[in-house]
């Protein structure tokens, strides 16, 4: 199974976990069976299985929060780690480390949020989307660094797995697309595991980079899906019967209202998209010929 291992290279799996408190809170209220801790359990199993496949395999887990991206694993080396106690049941130390750090860091993240809320009298509405693009950018930088540190002659294949429940953040479109094109350039595959509503942006990302996009039909079986679809590396996936690719929504968002549109106008200089004709491009200040309205008429006729 460990194809990268056979070639003498290592494989890096970066898991981006959406830890949006609003979404997880709602989930908790509506669905008693599925909670963040259950999800973290599943991720721990996936992470450990990945590490188990080959000795050289590496792992990173990043939390995409409402207002920050935090490394859950590995920890920032400068920080004081909780006295790493050796497991007493003969478990491989790294497994214990992964689980311990994941939980500790998540706990810290949640406590920070709690403190923030406690300090304020009138709690502002928390945004219900997470900054996935930030976490992806951090992940790409991390992958870039590890690739540089990789000894010469050894190949490293990298994969990003985004586990996301909350909605897309339209303000991040640019950052998100930059991250996607960068990963395409660096041969990094983006997989998406969607827990709730379909995400158009991630569909595009997976399609562009050749990753798997999967909306989990049943959250109870999250672990099964993770192990079945997202654990095997891309070279192995070809040989497996995986869920068929979904339709991809390739519509673009206009710059003026951030709506998704089918047909629109594109500035021929800077390629900004507008949903209606405007005589001056607001991005690059180009003025267009008044031929525009005529064109409109012609369009209506056709």
């Amino acid at each position: 199974m460990a194809d990268a291992g056979e070639k003498g290279g290592s494989s890096l799996l970066i898991i981006i976990l959406d830890t949006n408190p609003v979404w997880w809170g709602r989930k908790k209220v509506s669905d008693e069976q599925f909670s963040l801790s259950h999800c973290v359990d599943c991720i721990t199993v996936l992470a450990n299985s990945h590490l188990m496949l080959a000795h050289k395999n590496k792992l990173a887990v990043i939390a995409a929060h409402t207002d920050s991206s935090v490394f859950l694993y590995p920890q920032y080396p400068g920080k004081q780690t909780a006295a790493a106690k050796l497991p007493d049941d003969g478990q491989y130390e790294v497994f214990g480390q992964v689980e311990g750090q994941l939980r500790a860091q998540l706990k810290m993240l949640i406590m920070q949020d709690k403190e923030e809320i406690d300090e304020m009298y009138d709690v502002p509405e928390r945004p219900s989307d997470s900054l996935i693009a930030g976490a992806m950018a951090v992940a790409l930088c991390y992958a870039h660094r590890l690739e540089k540190e990789c000894p010469i002659g050894e190949a490293m294949s990298t994969r990003l797995l985004v586990i996301k429940g909350s909605e897309d953040c339209p303000a991040q479109y640019m950052n998100f697309m930059n991250a996607v094109f960068t990963s395409q350039k660096q041969n990094i595959i983006i997989d998406a595991c969607i827990l709730d509503k379909d995400s158009g942006l991630l569909q595009q990302a997976c399609d562009i980079t050749g990753g798997m996009y999967l909306k989990i039909p049943q959250l109870q079986g999250l672990l099964q899906y993770l192990m079945w679809v997202f654990l095997p590396d891309p070279s192995t996936r070809v040989k497996m019967a995986l869920p068929p690719r979904a339709q991809v929504d390739y519509r673009a968002a206009c710059f003026c209202h951030r709506n998704l549109i089918d047909i629109g106008y594109v500035c021929s200089v800077c390629l900004s998209i507008y949903c209606s004709f405007s005589p001056i491009c607001s991005t690059c200040q180009t003025t267009f010929k008044i031929l525009g309205p005529q064109k409109l008429k012609r369009k209506k006729k056709s």
Binding site: D207, Q247, D249
Partner: peptide, 19 residues
């Protein structure tokens, strides 16, 4: 020449892309 840079009408095409 600048006036030539008219807005080009574009449909951001979509949908149904498998392989």
């Amino acid at each position: 020449r600048r006036i030539n840079k008219e807005n080009k009408e574009k449909g951001a095409c979509l949908l149904f892309h498998l392989d």
